[in-house]
Design a protein around this nucleic acid. Sequence first.
DNA 1: TATAACATGTAACTAGTTACATGATTGG
DNA 2: CCAATCATGTAACTAGTTACATGTTATA
Lengths: 183, 183
Amino acid sequence: MLKYAILGFLKYRPHTGYEIKQTMDKSTGHFWHAKQSQIYTTLKKLEEGGLVASHPEPQESRPDRRVYMITESGGKELQVWLSQPVTKIENSKVILLLKLFFSGKEDKETILTQLRLQRSLHERQFERYKTEPTAFIEEILALQPDLKRDALLWEATRRFGELHEEVYMEWLDETISMVEKKF
Amino acid sequence: MLKYAILGFLKYRPHTGYEIKQTMDKSTGHFWHAKQSQIYTTLKKLEEGGLVASHPEPQESRPDRRVYMITESGGKELQVWLSQPVTKIENSKVILLLKLFFSGKEDKETILTQLRLQRSLHERQFERYKTEPTAFIEEILALQPDLKRDALLWEATRRFGELHEEVYMEWLDETISMVEKKF
DNA sequence: TATAACATGTAACTAGTTACATGATTGG
DNA sequence: CCAATCATGTAACTAGTTACATGTTATA
């Protein structure tokens, strides 16, 4: 899938591997991410398959960069993927829930510490999703006002993250007080 | 991580690989799942590491089963894992959002079809989370009333799934009407 | 009579993570 | 002067998926 994320970013403009990582972290970070190393290996595979093309760009006083562009065939592959509906819901993996599920023999305080730590982590994340992707969207829209439709969808994905963090905190609060009372 | 899920189930009672798959689907399915093949290979690795032990159980008129039990060392490893706090929030991957993010050039109807299909899938899933794990919890609690504490936590994880599906639907409705109006 | 459920496993593959290796420049 | 940023890549590994292989029995 990272393949399509990369093609998607390159559709807007050429990127180096390093830049893809940065753009990804600032925009799709809360629903799609990748390590730098995986980005480089995937770019290589994409180039072998003719979906992207690259050229080295010498820089003064900086290491050389390799700039990647999407090819016509890459554009088509992206388009086909985008037009296909997602026909199933993905089963996610949540380590916290797995641990909690098997924690019946743990003592009350261990569980509460666990849940309270998560509460603070998600609170921070919630604040992030309200500012970071918003800044990203406004920044790009100021330079390219023709991306209004894109920006509406970007905002929708940001909103998803916000709602999810909100409900996560709600659930943590609910669960913390349940454990406090009934354990 | 599947390793810990398996140890967790074996802590309650011995299971065959086949049974682990079934139990997992009915209980942790919405936040932890695995393919049958992965369960078998993981059991094998766990046995090599001495964390579980197995013996074959001949059956009349059925293929033989291999029953796995947790060992003392396996119990300890589980215990250590359970007591460690989860110190970061995991970055999830949501294909639908990735697709939506790059769909600025798709036409309105393609996007709406996509979102409406998801709406119906999540509605079905929502109904499931309200009944399936509940039935599982009650079934076990009827046989083993000493698992009351465990059952409280199981119910909390079920509630998480319910809340998440609810907010997912909320977001889909919000996004569908946004696309209808502004695209 | 067909298909779902029971039952176990291997092989090949794809995806993703961690660790290593290298090295210049800028800002505090 | 130290940490962060810029910049690219490989190797080894872990996790997970797909496909293949085999065979019985209960049930609709």
